[in-house]
């Protein structure tokens, strides 16, 4: 791995809820090397959005970071002041949220919003408008001049998604974080956005942290992949290593469940039996043991440590030390 841009160490995040403390992230370790694209996959509710909110320090009020560091360009993001962090978000780190309406204001036109985020820029209004139009065009919005004056509700879901990508890219950040940016897009546009992200990455040399459920998109876009389950990282490595030789039973099951890999038509799709464990009352063992198809006695009593499968490919599973 080359020089890291983002280094997350032992990150733990809790949510306070009525029934207690929900441990949404536990001892997370992730590296995003400079100029690389890192994908994050994992079951709904495994903490992907929480991870992103921690990095950009926009966690909800009932959340708290109980442990860990997030090193980015030499600073621990968790130590920055609100002001420093705000500047960081506007210039060095950009985000495309899962729900495009998170970053869009329903009562302002797209033009107003795209101009507003360029407020640090000294250029003329017409230059800013042209930049916005070019950005819209590059994410495939036709007729940008006519459309830019419209309001969010006048666009389709996928268009809003692309607009939020365009807005995130306007600042030319060194880290782009994207929370499922292609879920609302059809396959041809998805491929187009993947190529766009790859081009941007190549042109500006930025790194991308890319959250997606679409294993095919991860395979096509990313260099590395991090597999999460119920608040923990269970496996990570290059996409090729992890997808060709999954070491953790959860990763294996996840790959088996992908309908893209199922050739014959079926009305009953494979699933991983069982439920995600209760993150308020955690048992002492491996977090996946209740759903695992190859449990050992240790699995129910000891949390497995991270072990190397091959160089740069690791998994947290007792099978690796058995």
């Amino acid at each position: 791995m080359t020089e890291p841009l983002l280094t997350i160490r032992n990150l733990s995040v809790d949510y306070r809820i009525d029934t207690g403390r929900l441990q949404a992230l536990r001892q997370i370790n992730i590296d995003v090397p400079k100029g690389s694209i890192v994908g994050v996959v994992g079951e709904s509710g495994c903490g992907k959005s929480t991870l992103i909110s921690s990095i950009i320090r926009l966690l909800p009020h009932n959340a708290s970071v109980s442990n860990g560091t997030i090193e980015f360009e030499g600073a621990n993001l968790l130590d920055l002041s609100e002001n420093e962090m705000r500047t960081m978000r506007g210039t060095r780190i950009s985000i495309v949220f899962q729900d495009p309406m998170t970053s869009l204001n329903p009562v302002l036109s797209i033009e107003q919003q795209m101009t507003h985020i360029q407020y640090r820029d000294q250029r003329s209004t017409s230059d800013k408008l042209n930049k916005s139009l070019a950005m819209l065009e590059s994410v495939g919005i036709a007729d940008p001049r006519k459309r830019i004056t419209q309001y969010p509700h006048e666009y389709s879901g996928g268009m809003l998604q692309r607009i939020s990508i365009a807005m995130a890219l306007q600042a030319q950040p060194s880290l782009l974080i994207a929370d499922e940016p292609t879920t609302a897009l059809d396959a041809t546009l998805e491929v187009q956005i993947i190529h766009l992200l790859k081009d941007i990455q190549a042109e500006f040399g930025c790194s991308i942290l890319f959250i997606s459920h679409h294993l095919g998109v991860i395979a096509e876009l990313c260099d590395y992949v991090v597999v999460m389950y119920a608040g923990e990282v269970v496996e990570q490595g290059t996409v090729r290593d992890v997808f060709h030789n999954p070491a953790h039973p959860y990763t294996q099951k996840l790959l088996e469940c992908d309908p893209a890999g199922i050739q014959t038509k079926t009305r009953i799709l494979p699933v991983i039996p069982g439920e995600i464990p209760d993150l308020v009352n955690l048992s002492g063992g491996c977090i996946f043991s209740s759903r695992c198809h190859c449990v050992l006695p240790d699995c129910e009593t000891h949390i497995p440590q991270r072990r190397e499968v091959t160089s740069g490919h690791s998994a947290n599973c007792h099978l690796l030390s058995a």
Partner: peptide, 23 residues
């Protein structure tokens, strides 16, 4: 043909659409 495959080594044989999406 566009749907990406979960195998990083599978080269997609794609029919790529060029040109702008009309409005």
């Amino acid at each position: 043909s566009a749907s990406p495959s979960p195998d990083p080594d599978m080269q997609a044989d794609r029919i790529e659409l060029k040109g702008e999406i009309p409005s």
